[in-house]
């Protein structure tokens, strides 16, 4: 329960950053997708049921502040979470570069799921060219944000709570990599 609450607070902070702070410093409408990074992280460390429901709930809340399609974020975030869960037993989740790789692949998958959901189910046309134009910069921003967050979280944990493990953080700490 505490962990679920912790993740929801993290998602809330991500939304505040994306709607208020990042638009002040980022040009145009570009901003790193911190929710996507959180979902990838959850996919690596949470069990399918609790994590899946949490991600879907986060997606539904995210729809209240992003886009105009109710249920869309819930759908693509859940799809992303399940995709990560699907491969988690086949990869070495203790490698931190894996998170960066999964953020890269997750961004591409997210674009595919959004375009699929909008093209097939809604009247929105012509989203593909816009998404494809934005994709390279979005990929770069997401990977950069994931890298910074990874380093920052590990450093903060070492400084402030060296004797405690944050959920899944130990696996992202480069000291434990071979």
């Amino acid at each position: 329960m505490n962990r679920t609450l912790f993740y929801l607070v993290l998602a809330g902070v991500a939304v505040i950053l994306q709607t208020l702070l990042l638009p002040l410093v980022m040009p145009g409408h570009y901003k790193p997708d911190l929710i996507l990074i959180l979902v990838v992280y959850l996919g690596l460390h949470e069990d399918p049921w609790r994590g899946g429901l949490l991600v879907y709930l986060m997606g539904c809340c995210f729809d209240g502040v992003a886009g105009t399609f109710p249920g869309l974020s819930g759908f693509f975030l859940l799809g992303l979470f399940l995709a990560v869960r699907g491969i988690v037993t086949r990869v070495n989740t203790e490698s931190s570069p894996l998170l960066l790789l999964l953020v890269f692949a997750g961004t591409v998958l997210q674009v595919f799921l959004i375009a699929f959901a909008l093209d097939f189910f809604s009247r929105t046309a012509g989203l593909w060219p816009q998404i494809l134009r934005q994709l390279p910069l979005q990929l770069l921003l997401n990977i950069l944000a994931a890298f910074v967050l990874l380093r920052l979280t590990v450093r903060l944990q070492r400084i402030f709570i060296p004797r405690r493990d944050l959920p899944g953080l130990r696996k992202l700490d480069s000291r434990y990599e071979s």
Binding site: V15, Q18, T19, H29, I35, V65, T68
Partner: peptide
């Protein structure tokens, strides 16, 4: 506030 996602264009 702006839209939380880069793919959509909305403001609050």
């Amino acid at each position: 506030a702006e839209d939380a996602s880069s793919w959509f264009r909305t403001v609050t």
